[in-house]
Design a protein around this nucleic acid. Structure first.
Lengths: 250, 250
DNA sequence: CACTGATTAGTGTGATCACAGTGAGGCTAT
DNA sequence: ATAGCCTCACTGTGATCACACTAATCAGTG
């Protein structure tokens, strides 16, 4: 990821630079790990070593440590009783629980978005909906492009709820499902996207007409659809065995 | 809080001690800060210095640093553009937003608790309900005892939803409202508890009879009641002015 | 050959130091 | 007296080291 060794600002001639909002190295590592998590690059069950991640990314232990701590707090990573850190393994039971919570909370967000959205936000939503449609119905459908557009669509909606607390919670939830949905939904995402397309259309239309109940229902159906798709093509563990022992942790 | 300088286990004679689950110093600091936050000891707007907290608690910077990082992640503390850390100031706007989210999410938790609760959990819930009633209707009502029982009651219910994700979210939410409700609800908590008592009774009865809808409604009414109470005896800032300038963070 | 034992590499946690950036207080020059 | 500059105390961030604990390797013995 090439961290610029330091922010070497030698001399500021006339203008007084204000490096206030500069991103911390820890922030960069955090963002990087989030990406690796969301892309499935970090597989469930895989162990993380602070030192190794630090060496890989070319930084010291400290920023990695802090980034991992953050990820543990929002349940994107878990810490075993040995104090070892790994990306949580998702059982079907946990996945079901997570999905039901997501349906309720993100459905609520969609409902509020239908109520509080501005016209500008509606435009952005429509924009992302066609982006998703294009990515899926294209002649050579791009899986990663579709997932990106799907995520954008959802989060523009959640942001349009104008409830920052809710937005934060949905971010946490997506961080947890990320490793799963990106894992083995190869080109088959196109097949599963049939119902997604329909529900997205319903969803956007409901948000446009400020129909909160329908917006909630459409989003719930969308989530449920992809969740069932994951449950079928299941790479999930049926029950949480004491140890996976299948990790390639070094 | 008196941290034992270190876990000095000199020699373990015959039994092989397994100090696996031992609480980290960081954990202890985190718990301590949570308490200070929930008790209102750390007032909104107050600034936190890693070194000063470390010196006060008699530890080095590191555990404090990690504990504060965790609290920032779940929005119990906020980090200003100056990188300064303070406990967030709560505006009426933010409080309203937070309350609406809480009503929805914690209402959902109550609903699920009514469905999934075991008989043992029901007993615990009843137990905490009479504890709260006792604390409030006592001849010399104890504010801190009432608040403790109230929190216990709520979280036993949330735990009884058997949705760990939901439990985690409610913990985050309570961490944010903690500094407010404990701030200036002195003996007046008894007055405001009138409606709380009624709703608690409804809530517990609904959970007993597995009436999810009523459970949700009762909990929503409970939350709304205390929220309105806070909004009236308001110590909240009307709008988020650039700086409070009233902190004693020297 | 199988099993226990010690040694070693590797882990997360905590402490300490270095550094750049920030803000306030006091000084000087106008 | 006031505006501007400088100094200094203090901040969070990052790096490095020390330590206790864990897991796995390899040696020794049955």
């Amino acid at each position: 990821m090439s961290i610029p060794s330091a922010s070497k600002i030698s001399a500021r001639p006339t203008v007084r630079r204000k490096p206030l909002n500069r991103a911390t190295i820890s922030d960069q590592i955090y963002a990087q790990l989030c990406l690796s998590l969301a892309s499935g690059e970090l597989a469930p069950g895989e162990r993380l070593s602070i030192r190794k991640v630090a060496a890989t990314l070319g930084v010291s232990m400290m920023p990695v440590r802090e980034a991992i701590t953050r990820l543990i707090v929002d349940n994107a990573l878990e810490i075993l009783p040995n104090k070892a850190v790994r990306v949580p393994i998702m059982t079907t039971e946990i996945f079901r629980e997570l999905t039901s919570v997501r349906i309720h909370i993100e459905g609520f967000a969609a409902e509020q978005a239908a109520i509080h959205r501005t016209d500008e936000e509606l435009d952005l939503i429509k924009e992302q909906e066609v982006a998703f449609r294009d990515a899926v119905t294209s002649s050579n459908p791009s899986k990663i492009e579709a997932l990106r557009a799907n995520k954008n669509l959802h989060f523009i909606i959640y942001r349009a709820s104008h409830l920052p607390t809710l937005l934060r919670i949905t971010e946490m939830l997506w961080l947890r499902v990320g490793p799963i949905i990106n894992l083995d939904l190869d080109s088959s995402v196109v097949q599963g996207a049939k119902t997604a397309l329909a529900q997205h259309a319903r969803l956007v239309h409901a948000i446009q007409t400020r129909d909160a109940a329908t917006a909630r229902d459409a989003l719930a159906a969308d989530l449920l659809g992809t969740a069932n798709f994951v449950l079928e093509s299941t790479r999930l563990r049926e029950n949480n065995l004491p140890l996976p022992l299948s990790d390639f942790g070094h």
